[in-house]
């Protein structure tokens, strides 16, 4: 269970640009739930992800994981049990290192980073077996630099790296937004498969309403730091794309765009 309790987040406090994004924001996400989050720009989607991961700190309130308070835990410690895929495919891999070296780094995440060989040649076969199901040909290019891959290939590699070691949460921050439609569909299908296979609790921010409807157990729409739509399970299954689109348009009109 991931809980956000009474969160408050104010940007630029004490200036003319002061913006109170969250005030008394609470949300509970049960273990194993796949949550899709939609909302216009500035609605608080990305801030919510950053608060969960510890990239930014709340001004008040608590973030709890299974009853343990992680509000003050530094980002890198939280990320031991959280995997995060960013919008920019370059964020999840090291461009100057080979696919094999990237995988080895992720493989050793829970080990000591000591003076043992960084890349274990015996793992080559295993790495290839991990990459083959992606159908992107990555298994034949283990020695290629990650920087030479396409956006979709890098995002897929980042996904594999994220789930090589056991994690509790998967945070997907508009992770298909920078990809072409076909590659997006592929990465989305891959995401769903990984989340189901590993039984992960997943939070997916997306601008693609179709993905939000098609995938996940629960749909959340944010608007100016508040929840305007929250539908789970059966209720979510009955939700149609048009309903969400209508609500979305209504909100946008209120905003004047």
């Amino acid at each position: 269970m991931l809980e956000m309790l009474n969160l408050r987040k104010v940007y630029n406090p004490g200036t003319v640009r002061q913006l109170c994004l969250f005030e008394g924001f609470s949300l509970r996400i049960p273990r194993g739930q796949f949550l899709s989050i939609v909302g216009s720009n500035g609605s608080g989607k990305s801030s919510m992800m950053n608060l969960i991961c510890g990239t930014i700190q709340p001004d008040a309130g608590q973030i709890m994981v299974d009853g343990q308070d992680i509000t003050r835990m530094p980002e890198h410690k939280r990320l031991r049990r959280i995997g995060r895929i960013h919008q920019n495919p370059a964020m999840g891999t090291c461009a100057g290192m080979s696919i094999q070296e990237n995988l080895a780094l992720a493989d050793n995440k829970d080990q000591r980073m000591n003076l043992r060989p960084g890349v274990d040649k015996k793992q080559r076969q295993r790495y290839q077996d991990l990459l083959r199901p992606l159908g992107l040909g990555l298994e034949n290019m283990l020695d290629a630099r990650a920087g030479s891959l396409s956006g979709g290939q890098r995002q897929a590699l980042a996904m594999v790296m994220c789930v090589m070691t056991p994690i509790d949460f998967l945070i997907l921050d508009e992770h298909t937004a920078a990809l072409d439609p076909k590659t997006s569909d592929l990465i989305m299908a891959l995401t769903d498969q990984v989340v189901r296979e590993k039984g992960l609790t997943a939070l997916m921010v997306t601008h693609n309403l179709r993905y939000a409807i098609e995938y996940g157990d629960r749909l959340l729409m944010l608007h100016q730091g508040g929840i305007v739509l929250d539908r789970a399970d059966e209720q979510k299954k009955k939700t149609r794309l048009q309903d969400v689109l209508d609500l979305f348009t209504q909100i946008s009109i209120e905003l004047g765009n």
């Binding site: 461009a95 990237n102 080895a104 780094l105 980073m113």
Partner: peptide, 20 residues
């Protein structure tokens, strides 16, 4: 392993953080 981490720190700090 340590060397890969050093290289990662110069290449993409985000990856180092993601590795906990």
């Amino acid at each position: 392993r340590l060397g890969l981490l050093l290289r990662a720190a110069g290449d993409n700090q985000q990856v180092v953080t993601a590795l906990g």
